[in-house]
């Protein structure tokens, strides 16, 4: 399969070709195997992007950088514990509430029906979301990438 020499224009301009490739590229540029128009455009493009650079960060940001990152690391751990605890507490609370309202014959029928309906709705929604997540997980092309 023949090589697309136009694809090497950037590498040539960036000085990333080895001497032999460089020499061959120059010959092909002379002979017209490489598009002169594209070569000039890419040269102009490099000039354009090379005329600007990212703004530097103030030096003091680096002095505080590790401390801020460390705080985040600790905070993330805190969130994990808080979330776990909250899930257990909320689940236990809901269970108690349902037990009180649905199984307690003293509550009015409409209150028991509404509570049962809300619980059923939450269950259906939970299963639906879970099913969707599992489906996306199976077909997600980025599943191997850490988010």
């Amino acid at each position: 399969m023949s090589r697309d020499w136009n694809e090497l224009i950037s590498a040539y301009l960036d000085g990333e070709l080895d001497p032999a490739e460089r020499e061959e590229f120059e010959q092909r540029l002379e002979s017209g195997d490489v598009s002169r128009t594209e070569f000039e455009e890419m040269k102009a493009m490099r000039g354009l992007t090379g005329s600007v650079q990212l703004r530097a960060f103030p030096d003091h940001e680096w002095d505080r950088y590790w401390a801020k990152t460390y705080n985040r690391m600790e905070r993330n751990l805190g969130w994990i514990f808080l979330s776990l605890g909250a899930i257990v507490l909320v689940s236990a609370g809901l269970y108690e509430l349902l037990r009180e309202l649905v199984l307690d014959g003293a509550s009015p029928w409409w209150l028991r029906a509404a509570t049962g309906s809300a619980a059923l709705g939450m269950g259906v929604l939970f299963v639906s979301v879970l099913r969707e997540r599992l489906f996306v997980r199976k077909t997600d092309p980025y599943r191997g990438i850490e988010r």
Binding site: D4, N6, E7, L8, I9, S10, A11, E16, E38, E41, M42, M45, R46, L48, T49
Partner: peptide
Amino acid sequence: VMSRLHNARRRLRDRI
């Protein structure tokens, strides 16, 4: 990297 960067520059040129 060579081909991806060159194609990215082509598309950047088009957008510009």
